[in-house]
Each structure stands twice: as structure tokens, then as C-alpha cells.
Design a protein around this nucleic acid. Structure first.
Length: 465
RNA sequence: GGCGUCGUGGCCAAGUGGUAAGGCAAGGGUCUGCAAAAUCCUCAUCGCGGGUUCGAAUCUCGCCGACGCCUCCA
């Protein structure tokens, strides 16, 4: 039985879908005006892992991730670059999709964009006005009236009275309540805008997600995800809009990932402590980022530094070792040992599922993978042949794939491989003559070229990395 | 000031009532010409102080500390 921590209930609950075997999952994507950073990667990886596991458990997952392509920051950036804002955002949408693909994140089922959802957004706002939950102000903006929603604040646990509106931001005079938030913003001179019953303007940040949810998944969804920094005000406001509009419970489960920490602080643009996904991938492979996420708890802060990354990299290397072939001189394992391997492999798989069922306990799942890798490596060391390793390695690969780990050995070109093989052969001759200094020199020089040599009693193997 | 999360070995970290998973690092073996990889062994009583209980890292109270949100934010 799968259990998920629900931010709304503030506890772990049994997972039950609205429709049998179908999961409707909406995850807040990014505002596209700059390179995405590793904090975005964390969030994308968390929900990719959740999605993969749900599919592994037999669900069909409709996974929607939006792109916010109409926004102040985009408009400002476009001005700076003297570029059309929609062209700019489209550029970064394509860019982000590439980043995610290189992180081995499965593409979402759909990626709606604000700029392409305008008619529905306007209809949505009209509906809220009709129901008395929103009002058009004298300044051309349309605001949501928080006092019209008795439940407002129940996700973030805030009461209107407790919110010190205006303490950090100037309160817009046109609002009837300081906490009212914009559904529609009147266009300023020269800004990109859309026509509406309230004049030219563009949507506020929160309404887009409510509208895109409705367009892609309907009035009710199973899982709504995003970073925990979105709980308030973004998700709070989404709930208010969607539930006032439909009169139904919006999302059954609210799932939030913790923030990636760089130097003890949240990585964010305002703090300027940013590492882009591209920058990361120029130094480390995608599995390392994923392993970093897997080793922790998705809801907790994630420490991102050289120490945790080095450890994650070692973890990845170690898991890769389980997939290596049997030694050439393998004599085969006796039937008892083989059945012991098989039964331990099954128990590792059961541990894996038990951990993942428990609110996606990936750290526990990883432990099960290490357990399995140990069994496999032990069997290999004891002389198991490839045929005998096959079953356990199959389970291993299956589980690694659920987590989205590729565990690929690095590849070289056929040409370079041929040269390296030649060097290895030459070195074998040199070793026969016990010319150790020369032999070690070849090994060291190859290491500098990122080729690792391993000698064993039945010959020498090598690999990239 | 309000809301919330958290504090487990040198580091990352799992674990919500019965005597602490896993990984990294470290030390010691096996293997190796030497390495590397793999493997085996060693390595904590859970921030501090009370309480509940036969029994608590796990429940409760207090204190200390960290982090997030309350403004754009994954």
C-alpha cells in the first residue's frame, strides 16, 4: 500500500486515486527567462522519480508540467535583450526541455504554456467574478477576494489576521483587503498584453496554474506538486481559485519537495548562489545529481556541496560495479549458491518496494540496491558466470531504472578503443617480462587520459572514467 | 512577530514504542608484482533537561540551535 505525505493534511496518508489506475499529477514548472539551476533540477528529479514509481506500480500517469512564459521577469529580461518576450521564453522552454532530457527526466505528458491558455484564463476569471470571489478594481486590475473564501489559508496554516500584509510590500490601494491577489494585471505602456473584458493586460501568476490544471486534467486532480517555497502564496491561491470556481476539492494530495541548499542557504536567484544545470553537467554525470537526490528525503533540504557530490559520485560508481560481467575464467557457481542469490535478490526487491511505498523513501530504496549489488558482486567473486548473474542483474537494472539511474559506463569512440586495446596488449607483453616500471607507466598515463585499468588473474580489463 | 520543518557516528542519511538501514571517509584482512575494483571485519545509543511507559531516537513539556515560508522563487 503506497503512502504519501500530504502537505494539506500534514500527515502521511494512503494513496487512493480518483479514477482506478490513473494518476493526474500537476507539477509547477519554471518561469522561463534564464538558465535553469540545480535547484530546479532537484524538483524535476523528485517528481520524475515519483512518476516513475507510480508507473512501476501499475498506474497510468498524466504528468503535467507548465511553463510560465508570461511574467514580469520575462518582460524585463526581454527589454534588456531587446528581444520579443514570447520568443525569449520559447527559447528557454526549449533549453529547459534539453536540460531535463540530459538529466534523464522523462518528458511530461504535456507542457502547457500561459500564452496559449489565455481564453480559458479569462473565462476562469469571469467565472470567479460571477460567483463573487473576485472583483475588477478601478486601476484595471482584477483581484481575488480572500475574504470570500472561508477556507483561505488552510494549506499554509495561516489565518488572514496573522498575515502581516503590507509589512514588506506596499499594499495596493485598489484592493479591498490587503491580502487580495491579482488575477489580471492591467498592461503598462508598451508591454505585451492580451485583450480582456477588463482591458488590455495579462494574467497574474496564480491563475495560470488553476486554468492549466482545468484545461489539462479537469476540475479535480490526484497530486499537485512543486517546491515547498510555493506553498504560500502560490498553492494557497491556486486552491482558492480552483475550489471557488468548481465548488469541488481541487487536489487530493499536495506534495512538496525541499529546497536545495548551497552553503547552508537555499539556492535562489535573489541570493545569487546559482549553479546552472549545464554547469553541473559539464563536471559531473547526470546520475550523480540524481543520486544526490535519492540519498536524501525529497521533503527535506538537500545539501549540495563537494562532499555530498563526491559521495554521490562514489555511490554511482559502486552501483555500476554490479552490472559488470562475470570474469572470463568463471567456473560457475553451485546450485545452492545460485538459489541463495536468487532469494536474496527477491528480498532486496521487496525491501525496495516497501521503502518506496513509504512516501517514496528513496534512501531506503537505494540501500536495497546496495544490498543487491553486494549479492551480485559476491557471486561474481565466487565464480558465477554471466548466465548465473543474469537474473539478479536483471532485477538490479529494473529497480535502478525505476529510480531513473542509467548506470552507463562511459563510451569512447571505436577508434580510440582500438588504440587503447593495442596499448593493453602491449602492456600485457611488458608484464610477462615483469617490466613493472614500464607497465605502471602505461597504466598511469592511461589514467591521466581517463582510462582505468584493472588487472586480475585472468587478464586485464579497462574502462573509461 | 506569525506559520512550518528539522537536530541520529568525521560527513551524507534511513528509521514514529521493543534494545540504531545504507553510503562516503578511516583502520585492518583477502585478492594483486604493485595498484585499482570487488569482498570481509572494525567503527554511534540518536542536541540538552524533565515527563509518560515494563520499555523511547521514536510520545509529551521546556530549553538551545538550524533551515524554509510570510516578497519573486523549484
Amino acid at each position: 500500500m503506497l503512502k504519501i505525505y500530504n502537505t494539506l493534511a500534514r500527515k502521511t496518508e494512503e494513496f487512493q486515486t480518483l479514477e482506478p489506475n490513473l494518476v493526474k499529477m500537476y507539477v509547477c514548472g519554471v518561469t522561463v527567462y534564464n538558465d535553469a539551476h540545480v535547484g530546479h533540477a532537484m524538483s524535476a528529479l523528485v517528481f520524475d522519480i515519483i512518476r516513475r514509481y507510480l508507473e512501476y506500480r501499475g498506474y497510468t500517469v498524466k504528468h503535467v508540467m507548465n511553463y510560465t512564459d508570461v511574467d514580469d521577469k520575462i518582460i524585463n529580461r526581454a527589454k534588456q535583450l531587446k528581444e520579443d518576450p514570447l520568443k525569449l521564453s520559447q527559447r528557454y522552454i526549449e533549453d529547459y526541455a534539453k536540460d531535463l532530457a540530459s538529466l534523464n527526466v522523462l518528458p511530461a505528458t504535456s507542457n502547457p504554456q500561459v500564452s496559449k491558455t489565455m481564453p480559458l484564463i479569462i473565462k476562469f476569471i469571469e467565472g470567479l467574478i460571477e460567483k463573487g470571489n473576485a472583483y475588477a478594481a478601478t486601476n484595471g486590475d482584477v483581484y481575488f477576494s480572500v475574504t470570500s473564501d472561508a477556507d483561505y489559508g488552510r494549506l499554509s496554516g495561516r489565518k488572514l489576521d496573522d498575515m502581516q500584509a503590507g509589512s514588506r510590500v506596499e499594499v495596493e490601494e485598489a484592493k479591498t483587503h490587503p491580502m487580495d491577489f491579482a488575477l489580471w494585471k492591467a498592461a503598462k505602456e508598451g508591454e505585451i498584453s492580451w485583450d480582456s473584458p477588463w482591458g488590455h493586460g495579462r494574467p497574474g501568476w496564480h491563475i495560470e496554474c488553476s486554468a492549466m490544471n482545468l484545461a489539462e486534467l479537469g476540475e479535480q486532480i490526484d497530486i499537485h506538486g512543486g517546491g515547498n517555497d510555493l506553498i504560500f502564496p502560490h498553492h494557497e491561491n491556486e486552491i482558492a481559485q480552483s475550489e471557488c470556481y468548481s465548488g469541488k476539492e481541487f487536489s487530493r494530495y499536495w506534495v512538496h519537495n525541499g529546497m536545495l541548499q548551497l552553503g547552508g542557504e537555499k539556492m535562489s536567484k535573489s541570493l545569487g548562489n546559482i549553479i546552472s544545470i549545464k554547469e553541473f553537467l559539464s563536471k559531473r554525470e547526470a546520475d550523480v545529481m540524481r543520486m544526490l537526490v535519492l540519498n536524501g528525503t525529497y521533503r527535506s533540504p538537500l545539501l549540495f556541496n563537494d562532499d555530498t557530490l563526491d559521495a554521490a559520485q562514489k555511490n554511482v560508481e559502486r552501483l555500476k560495479s554490479a552490472l559488470r560481467p562475470a570474469s572470463a575464467s568463471a567456473s560457475g557457481l553451485n546450485p545452492e549458491s545460485i538459489s541463495a542469490v536468487a532469494s536474496t535478490a527477491e528480498s532486496a526487491k521487496a525491501n525496495f518496494i516497501e521503502a518506496m511505498d513509504s512516501d517514496f523513501n528513496t534512501a531506503g530504496a537505494i540501500a536495497a540496491l546496495f544490498e543487491l549489488s553486494k549479492i551480485i558482486n559476491n557471486a561474481r567473486d565466487s565464480g558465477a558466470n554471466d548466465q548465473q548473474l543474469k537474473s539478479a542483474q536483471g532485477i538490479f537494472r529494473e529497480l535502478a531504472n525505476v529510480l531513473g539511474l542509467k548506470l552507463e559506463e562511459k563510451q569512447g569512440s571505436a577508434d580510440s578503443d582500438a588504440f587503447i586495446n593495442l596499448l593493453i596488449e602491449t602492456r600485457a607483453e611488458v608484464r610477462k617480462q615483469k617490466l613493472w616500471a614500464l607497465s605502471d607507466q602505461i597504466r598511469d598515463k592511461l589514467k591521466e587520459l581517463n582510462v582505468t585499468i584493472e588487472d586480475s588473474k585472468d587478464g586485464t580489463t579497462w574502462r573509461w572514467g
